[in-house]
């Protein structure tokens, strides 16, 4: 959840202070595991045996089940429960509102990730800017880059993500009516 600030919001100040900030490299809570892969495949009815069938995967060049592309970030993370105290750059960046929508995602996949691998992620904040959307004429957009490495220090994937944050309809209306401090 982004951090909506009270009072005056200056995008140029936010850009100067936050672009280039990075988290520490953080290892995922668990190794790459079969059952989360199965649940992930279930949601889009993916039957690919490279992801689901250890016997089939053992006979391929990978030699073992590999994780679907979109799961590299999942296994580099800690999951929602139990919650951990960890730095979340997106929760620290000052914004106008607390609502968020993920917009653009772009991943490069450099190496396969196998069951048993341990993944580590680091996030860098690469851009922040204002651009209007239907819900909010002063929406704030945040661009991050995630670099994911395996237990051997090899870069396995790089993801670039654009998130927009916006205010509630009430806050937008209050701002338009000239009310100071109309935030969130």
């Amino acid at each position: 959840m982004p951090r909506a600030v009270e009072g005056k919001y200056d995008i140029e100040v936010v850009r100067r202070e936050w672009i280039g900030k990075a988290t520490d490299a953080r290892r995922g809570r668990y190794p790459v595991e079969h059952d989360p892969i199965r649940r992930y495949c279930h949601m889009v009815e993916d039957r690919n045996p490279l992801f689901l069938d250890p016997e089939f995967a053992a006979g391929t060049e990978y030699g073992a089940v590999i994780a679907p592309l979109g799961m590299v970030g999942y296994f580099a993370g800690n999951g929602a429960w139990p919650p951990l105290e960890e730095r979340n750059l997106l929760a620290e960046v000052p914004t106008r509102g607390v609502r968020l929508i993920n917009m653009n995602t772009d991943w490069e996949y450099l190496k396969p990730v196998r069951v048993g691998d341990r993944l580590t992620t680091q996030t860098v904040l690469t851009d922040i800017f204002e651009k209007p959307i239907r819900l909010d004429p002063k929406a704030v957009w945040i661009v991050t880059e995630n670099r994911i490495t395996n237990q051997d220090g090899e870069l396995v994937a790089v993801g670039r993500n654009t998130l927009l944050t916006h205010r509630t309809p009430e806050a937008v209306a209050a701002d338009a009516a000239g009310m100071e401090g109309a935030r969130a």
Partner: peptide
Amino acid sequence: QAALSRLLTDWVGPAGWVRRLG
């Protein structure tokens, strides 16, 4: 992302590889 990836990984087969998806 999973829905788009499935289309690609089904198509490239076990010896193919998806290098980039945006």
